[in-house]
Each structure stands twice: as structure tokens, then as C-alpha cells.
Design a binder for these strands. Structure first.
Lengths: 331, 331
DNA sequence: CTGAAAGCGCTTACAG
DNA sequence: CTGAAAGCGCTTACAG
């Protein structure tokens, strides 16, 4: 039963509650001797300050809200790991807000504001620029610092942590072109995400630079990308390379290609994005862009703590390095 | 700026704050007419009660703590999805507590208690029975309801939501035995999890029933299960079937088997647990036990709400149905 | 059905 | 360096 209150501690230590509070929050303001005495009592009683009461009095909850649009996305868990590790270092708690398709985002944001979090981390795209502006306005008008993690936005006032997806798209395409592939397809998603738009832009840039025709194929689904969609693909089209905007799309496509008699990578080179476990479990192993998802989470959280503590931040738009992991699905 | 307080609402509506509070919490106690007036003002002012103040006054935070040992585990994200959906229905918030290897669990539990959550969901094990007892004692002594999700424990007083892993282990083994496989291996983890112990028990039961010798092979790692570990495996051992306690282990093993010239499923049948995306992206597709992870999350959360509201709960140990998804890796 | 008042467990100026 | 007091924004008996 560690339900001792600050009054109990004050009483047992023979000091006022103000002093106990100071020992916890501004120890340097308390005489060494008094502090030791109070600390001893705190330990004996197993006292832990009630964070709710503290939150009300100080108007700081040491809690950050983490908004997630699609919680089942593979990257989310790892990003949460990074966020959580840093949050623990800074003694912040994490409140999770999972947004479902059927929910009104703005309404959820109002809820988050009512939850009195000190800051917000907004994860993982599917956001267009308008949405980003709405969110920015909402949090700004309530004075709540926020950081977008793994979201792409061109607004210079919006704090973001991500990788340079355009460059990544360019580089992976370049890799295939340099392998003398002429008909390189980009397999993207039917739904438009800002992140995938960037990948596409990089892909297009590399193709045009090489005087090749960009060919973007949009698929819905993921692990089971529409087989029908692809059934005529191999008879109709000339294709010697494909890039999936996600590993799962790339692996899925690679499997279908093999079912259609293509040898990987001889006939067809395939690459993906994110370097997930899928890339390692596929045969052949998939070449993929490694996105430092954990780091994106960790760095966003660190940036957010700075913003919450009104530290001067030199750069609110952080781009983390990525690299290509070359495996057997390409030469 | 939705920072109107209850005072503002009371003032604008010409009532006391007690009445505003009642409109929010016990609307039936307020005269229709008054209620409408207050509701109108609430809307106009965009008032949302400060949940921290409410938490302090009512001693209920409508927040549940979710404890996660390994957040990167594939099942966690989906379970969180189930938890989150139900939590939203009941208007509970979720606070995340990720436990790292290097952390003292009991200390974390103390923190959670200090956070004043109304209840706790404990996910996804690596727990042995002693640990379960510690946790149970801790929360009981603080009067905090809790539910273990996807954790196996034999203590009848511990609320758990899971599937019958012993039975699942039995059934999948039986499937292989009925296909006339004689040398069925179980590929388990080096570390002992209660969940895997159950799978093993079911496997052993099926093997012994069939007068076959159980052979359990423990591996560390996962996606890249130790190749050296297995290098001599296929020359030394007679094996015509293998069950991985996780899909990733099964797929990884299947890949190595194929590298060693085995044809799946003719020479070697392989099955996994969890029916993750890995099972779908592997070639051949993996037969696997479907564990209703989302449902486990959802049902745990529902059970927890009952416990938090001291509803009579007839059954605090819920076992959800599972089934075998048969694919090409077995006959 | 409604209001005045106490209280939830802290923090934080303000004095001293 | 320490304490008395006000206040954070709510809820909840208690009266009426």
C-alpha cells in the first residue's frame, strides 16, 4: 500500500508539505540535512507523488500524447520502442491515441487537448498537406508542442523527423538502372500518402534522368496484393525490375513473378522499402532501403522534449540517414 | 482555444458549477430545461472537462495502463489495436508502459501505481509463474484491477485472456502425425516462456499418444535463427516435419531446409504459430495456428472494464478459440 | 432539482 | 532555508 500522501511524509519528517515538495522538485533549495531526513521518510513510507495532483497543480502532466493512424503498420511498433525509451529517460509517460478510419481527426485532437498532455507526437503519414496544416493550427492555438514522426511535409514551420524519401527513391531506382535495367516499375499504393509521393518523385527523377519512361503501378492491399491485378501483368508488359514502396508489396510481387516463371534477379530485380523482417524471410532475400524507424521515434521524442521545455531548437526539421541493404533480389 | 473551465460554463449558463458537473456526469439528475441550457453553453464555448482535475477529484482517471514487455513483437501492435478500439468505446485512455530488459519490473509497477490508472492490462509474457504472483500481489495490494492478455498462468485467481496453447500444440502436432510423419520436431525458443511451455506440452502429449519420440530443439533468435545451429541438422537427423513456436522461426527453418535440398512439404512438412503475415509471404505458404490476437486485446480490455466497475464477472479466465490455417507447407 | 462548501494531493509565489 | 496559504479545475456529499 504505497498510498502515503505528501502530508504523511511532511508529518513524519516534521516539515511542511512545501518542503517535501521542494525536496522532490527543487532539491537544491533545501538544506542538505533536511533533505536527507525527508528522503529517508519518503523511502520508508514508499511514497510516490500522485502524478494527477501534481499535474493539476503544476499544469504539467509529464505526459506526451502519441497519435497513431494505423497501429498495425509494421513500423509503428518499432517507432514506439524508440519513443518509449527516450520518454523513459526524460520521465515522460505516453498516452496512446489510435485513430481509426471512421473517426473524426479534429475531434480526436480536441480530446487530446482535453487530456492535458504536454506535447504530441504524430506518427506515420497518410497525411496530405491540408491535414498537416489543420493539425498544426489546432495544436498551436492550444499552445501544445508537437512533432511529426515519419511524416513528410513541406511546411518549414512544422517540426518533422523523417528520412529523405525522395532521395531514397532516387537511389534505389538508380541502383537498378545502373544494373542496366530498362523497364523499372514502381509498385505504389492506390491511396496517396505523402511519403509515397516522395518515393515516387525520386523514382521519376532517376528514370527521367536516364531517359527512361517512369511506370507507376498502384495497387491496393499489401501482403495479398491483388493477384488478378497482376495476372496479365507478365504477359502484357515488359518488365525487368520492380520497386515496392513497402517490403510486403515487393515480396508479394516477387512471389507472383516467380509463379509466372520469372527468375529473380536474372529476369527481374526487385527491391523494397523499410528493410523489415519480410525482407529477410523472403526467398531470395530482398534488397531494401533501411529506414531507421527506431531512431525516428527516438529523435522525435527528443526533439519534442526540447520544444516542451522551450529550449532553443536550431533545426525543427530533421532528416535521418538511410542506406540501401543489398541482397539477392538484385545484382 | 478550448480552455474554458467549468466556471466559465457555469457563469454563462447562470448555474452553479455543481450543476454543470451533473450535466456531464449525472444528466438524469438535472431538469431537462436546465440541462439543455448548459449543454448549449458547453457547445458554444467548446468546453471539455480537464481530465486531470476530474481525475483528482473523482479518484478515477478513466485511464488504463498497458504494460508491454517486448513492444516489437509482431502480435503486440494488433493486440493494442483491439485494446484501443474497446477502450475508445468505453472512453478509457491508454497509458503505455514498455518494459525493457534492463528494467526492474517491480519498480515499474510502482510507477504505474503512482500514475493512478484505474486498471492494468499486462501483455505478452516471458513471465514465469513466480513473476505472475509478484504482479498479482502488487496490484491487489493497491486495489488495482488487472488482466493478463496472452499470458498463460495456472493461478485460478488471475484474470487471463488467451487461447488454449496446449490444445493448439496438440492439434498441430496431430495434423502432422496424421499425415504419417514420424520424426516431428518442435522448434522452440531458448528462453522459456509460459506460452511456449504450453505449446511444448501439447506437442509432447500428441507425440507420446502416437508412441513417437518428442524432439524439442531450442533456438535463440528468430528471423535469422542461428544458421550454424542448423548446419549439421539435416545431415545428422532424421526429420520429416517441424513446428515452429513462431511463424518467423518456422519460415526461417523452412528456408534453411530448402537450401539443404529438402522439398516442402514432400520431404519435410512445416507449421507455425500465430498466422502472421510471414506465413503468407513465405514460399510455400505456411500452415499456421491462427491466434486471434486482436480479439485477445479486445476481450481483455472488456474484461478489465468489468473488473474496474466491480461488475460481477462469472469467468475471469477466458480462452478464445483458435484454428489451424492449412496451407502448402503441409499436406 | 439546485447550490454552497469541502476536498482531491499536489505546486508555487509570497513572507519571513 | 522554510512555512502558511492560495489555487489548480473538478466531484460529491450535504442541505434545502
Amino acid at each position: 500500500m504505497s498510498n502515503a500522501t505528501i502530508y504523511d511524509v511532511a508529518g513524519a519528517a516534521g516539515v511542511s508539505l512545501a518542503t517535501v515538495s521542494r525536496v522532490l522538485n527543487n532539491p537544491e533549495k533545501v538544506k542538505e540535512e533536511t533533505r536527507q531526513r525527508v528522503l529517508k521518510v519518503i523511502k520508508e513510507l514508499g511514497y510516490r507523488p500522485n502524478v494527477i495532483a501534481r499535474g493539476l497543480a503544476s499544469r504539467k502532466t509529464t505526459t506526451v500524447g502519441v497519435v497513431i493512424s494505423d497501429i498495425t503498420r509494421a513500423s509503428v511498433a518499432e517507432m514506439l520502442g524508440g519513443i518509449s525509451d527516450i520518454a523513459q529517460n526524460y520521465h515522460y509517460s505516453i498516452k496512446l491515441f489510435a485513430i481509426r478510419e471512421d473517426m473524426d481527426v479534429i475531434d480526436t485532437l480536441h480530446d487530446i487537448v482535453a487530456e492535458q498532455v504536454d506535447g504530441v507526437l504524430y506518427l506515420n503519414d497518410e497525411l496530405n498537406e491540408n491535414r498537416v496544416e489543420d493539425i498544426k493550427r489546432m495544436f498551436n492555438s492550444n499552445g501544445i508542442p508537437f512533432v511529426f514522426a515519419n511524416v513528410v511535409s513541406d511546411d518549414p514551420d512544422v517540426p518533422t523527423v523523417s528520412i529523405d524519401y525522395e532521395k531514397a527513391g532516387y537511389e534505389i531506382t538508380k541502383l537498378l538502372i545502373n544494373d542496366n535495367r530498362k523497364n523499372v516499375y514502381l509498385l505504389s499504393t492506390a491511396r496517396r500518402y505523402s511519403v509515397n509521393d516522395k518515393k515516387e518523385a525520386g523514382y521519376v527523377r532517376a528514370m527521367e534522368e536516364a531517359k527512361l519512361e517512369p511506370k507507376i503501378f498502384r495497387t491496393s492491399g499489401d501482403t495479398n496484393i491483388n493477384r488478378q491485378h497482376f495476372s496479365t501483368f507478365f504477359s502484357d508488359k515488359k518488365i525487368d525490375a520492380a520497386i515496392g514502396v513497402r517490403d510486403s508489396i515487393a515480396v508479394s510481387f516477387m512471389n507472383i513473378a516467380r509463379d509466372n516463371g520469372r527468375t529473380i534477379p536474372k529476369d527481374l530485380a526487385v527491391a523494397g522499402f523499410q528493410n523489415t523482417k519480410y525482407a529477410l524471410l523472403s526467398r531470395p532475400n530482398l534488397t531494401s532501403i533501411d529506414v531507421p524507424v527506431y531512431d525516428i521515434g527516438a529523435v522525435s521524442m527528443r526533439l519534442l522534449t526540447k520544444l516542451m521545455n522551450q529550449k532553443d531548437v536550431d533545426n525543427i526539421r530533421i532528416s535521418l540517414p538511410h542506406y540501401i541493404v543489398k541482397r539477392q533480389s538484385t545484382n
